[in-house]
């Protein structure tokens, strides 16, 4: 779904602008993210997706670890928990089990989720516990000023890969799928509308939903790798660097080189952890919550 509107000579409003104030905590903006950082765009897509569900703010918990993406919960009016580096999924798991009716959304980054938190990531997917995991993937450790991350492509420059990164990057979606997540998708900050739709589907999904969100860090990744402006990064990495699933289906592999596939990549029904646990309680003769 491409949302870029074609200019029309009409002066009529298509819609009133979305009112984020229901979800933004008073006095918390402006946020700490750098000029041109895509995190704010991702957050706005999330808030619109949450709004579409029609559920109360009380029903959502936003849990995060450490890093730029992990500052998300502080700005929004939900049950919010900003935890340790890499550990958001473990806190989220405990919370979900104590309060199964809460819709738990984890906002995490490529470093937080896949490096220090890699073990929790694969095990959370394996359990298929009902949870949305949003990986804000900007290929860099932004909070600590620009070191290469587990998703940084080979050859790219970071403060700890001045000669070009020699490590192979993870593919977040492949990793999630292989680990057992039952909803795997990729979106970008550039494709804000598509991302909103994916996030809505992810929230409605019962099971572990992982969304690899391609996002830009102009301050570090952009500056080191010769991108002139935030919008140039969005164009080159998020727009030109990705291709919708449907469009990719008919193309030969050589045409897909260097492109990441966008959309809901994998979806499957599989027993979900909290439901399975409720059955276990019944089996043990206990009373379920």
């Amino acid at each position: 779904m491409e949302t870029a509107a074609t200019p029309k000579k009409t002066k009529k409003a298509k819609q009133t602008p979305f009112d984020y104030s229901k979800y933004i905590r008073g006095g918390k903006l402006p946020h700490i993210w750098c000029p041109g950082c895509g995190h704010g765009i991702v957050l706005k897509s999330l808030l619109r997706a949450i709004d579409t569900t029609g559920r109360s703010n009380n029903d959502f918990a936003l849990v995060s670890g450490i890093g730029c993406s992990s500052r998300t919960p502080g700005y929004v009016d939900f049950n919010t928990l900003h935890t340790l580096h890499g550990r958001a999924l473990a806190y989220a798991t405990g919370l979900k089990m104590a309060k199964p009716n809460l819709k738990v959304i984890v906002t995490t980054g490529d470093g937080d989720a896949l490096a220090i938190g890699g073990n929790h990531f694969i095990h959370t997917c394996r359990r298929n516990i009902d949870m949305v995991i949003m990986v804000y993937n900007n290929y860099i450790y932004g909070m600590t000023s620009g070191q290469f991350s587990p998703t940084t492509a080979q050859g790219m420059i970071a403060t700890t890969s001045r000669y070009g990164n020699i490590e192979s990057p993870f593919d977040v979606c492949k990793m999630a799928e292989a680990s057992g997540a039952t909803f795997v998708a990729r979106g970008t900050a550039y494709h804000y509308g598509e991302l909103e739709k994916i996030l809505y589907e992810a929230i409605m999904h019962k099971g572990t939903a992982v969304i690899d969100i391609i996002d830009s860090c102009p301050t570090y990744y952009g500056r080191f790798n010769k991108f002139k402006t935030p919008s140039e990064m969005m164009e080159k990495i998020e727009k030109e660097g990705t291709i919708p699933l449907k469009q990719a289906a008919g193309l030969p592999p050589e045409k897909l080189q260097g492109k990441l596939i966008r959309g809901i990549i994998y979806k499957k029904e599989r027993p979900e952890y909290t439901s399975e646990y409720a059955k276990l309680v019944e089996k043990a003769g206990g009373k379920s919550k």
Partner: peptide
């Protein structure tokens, strides 16, 4: 301006 709202939707800063 066509009120397409692209500026709003892609503004990272709610601005």
């Amino acid at each position: 301006c066509t009120k397409c709202q692209l500026c709003d939707l892609r503004c990272p800063d709610f601005a």
